[in-house]
Simulated scan of single mutants.
Amino acid sequence: MSTAALRAEARAWIAAHRDAAVPARGAHVPHDHTPDEHDRRWLDALRDGRWLCLSWPERYGGRALSETEVIAVNEEFARAGVERPRLGMSETLVAPAILAHGTPEQKDRLLPRILSGRDVYCQGFSEPETGSDLARLRTRGVVEGGTVRITGHKIWTSYGRLANMMFVLCRTDPDAPRHQGLSYVLLPLDGDGVDVRPIRQITGGHGFCEEFIDGACAPLDNVIGGLNNGWRVAMTTLGAERAGEITSQYFGYRREFDALLGRLRSQGRLADPGVRRALAEAYVRVLLMRCTGRRAADELRAGGDAAALLAIDKINWSEHHCDFGALALDAQGPAGLVRPEGDGYRIDAFQRVMLESRGRRIARGTNQVQRNIIAERVLGLPR
């Protein structure tokens, strides 16, 4: 099928199912968002229409689309203003690792469970006191017969409260150099030995969790890429995480910008030259995302590697979101600080951006690390 025909199919399907669609949200789904019945029905419709896991081979329920074809579909959903949700980290992070490093038996067993929603994964990489140095992790894995017994502590686990599985990086050979001796293990969270504790955030919700793991077991069949080969598998996951939605994320940031513009217009705040200047600067950064996404699409279409653009893009969108959150509140004056009425700790969309955006300088690779990547790999500067 040509890309034009694929776009036409997507447009026709969206038009036929628009009444059931979930409207597109802002640039990021809130950390503490819990899918409701509307979300679940829309996800079922997308699953039935085969609009999930688009790049997977057809035997596992995908469409075997190329990266440029996936970009085309994402653009059609974004232009229509409706969500094309992913199956969380299950689809975007662990599935690429299974497809690249899993055995045929693992792919046949694990991928259908992801597509059906039976398995929902969270990421067990970050640990207390290790910062961004993943190779310093201290969670241990001991092979006992046909199982791996895991003991350790993971933290900053997005959506851990909604998951029944975790892809864990643990040290299975303590005598090996620090980048070696690691294993990538799929660990059930509903068994003995795992205590999942939600972490309350500044927004009032519990989008992150920490896990205390005390002798929890996973079958050896759940080790992806083989024992002590976890670093290579983890790099596949991190590459998928950093790629994100570089080619279509512009639409979400543009929706947020337009929403702020509308609010400021209704408040009569656009006459302030300082506000207008700050809005212009924010708009330029949104356009930079669009340009970087197009460059990445062109690079991928030509069969190239867009890794350098990912580091540039990560810094651009995360720094923009921090600045945009501050701008949204500052430009509104005192009104920006007033929380919506109602029970509980309510915040509006712009207050949420301001509070949540700070952590995005750390997510998907800290901005300090990204700047080193740009300096060394793009500009050719010495280490």
Results as ranks from 00 to 15, higher is better:
G336A: 10
Q123L: 15
K107R: 15
S318L: 07
L54P: 03
V185S: 01
T151R: 06
L93V: 11
L220N: 01
R47A: 15
T172M: 12
A280Q: 13
V196H: 08
L220D: 04
G293A: 07
E241T: 07
A296I: 06
E256K: 02
L260F: 02
R63M: 07
L111W: 04
G325F: 00
K107G: 09
W231Y: 06
C122S: 12
Q201L: 14
N367E: 14
G102I: 06
I373F: 15
E129K: 12
T34M: 12
S55D: 12
L134S: 04
E256H: 04
P188N: 05
R113W: 02
L162D: 13
E58L: 07
R346S: 07
E356Q: 14
I213D: 02
P96E: 08
W231F: 05
G193N: 08
N74I: 03
D258H: 01
E105P: 00
I202T: 10
A243P: 00
A282P: 04
D343F: 11
G359T: 05
G274Y: 13
E144L: 11
L186I: 03
A278Y: 01
S132Y: 05
M354W: 05
E241W: 04
E376I: 00
M165L: 10
G262Q: 09
G342C: 09
A280I: 06
A331N: 02
L270T: 01
G81W: 03
Q267W: 04
G274A: 10
I312N: 03
I14P: 01
A282K: 04
L87M: 12
I374H: 05
D44M: 11
R346P: 03
N367L: 13
E241V: 07
D175E: 12
G325P: 01
D195Q: 12
E105L: 05
E127H: 05
A308H: 15
L381H: 14
L310K: 01
R277D: 11
Y253W: 11
A5T: 07
N164Q: 13
S90M: 05
D195W: 02
E245P: 01
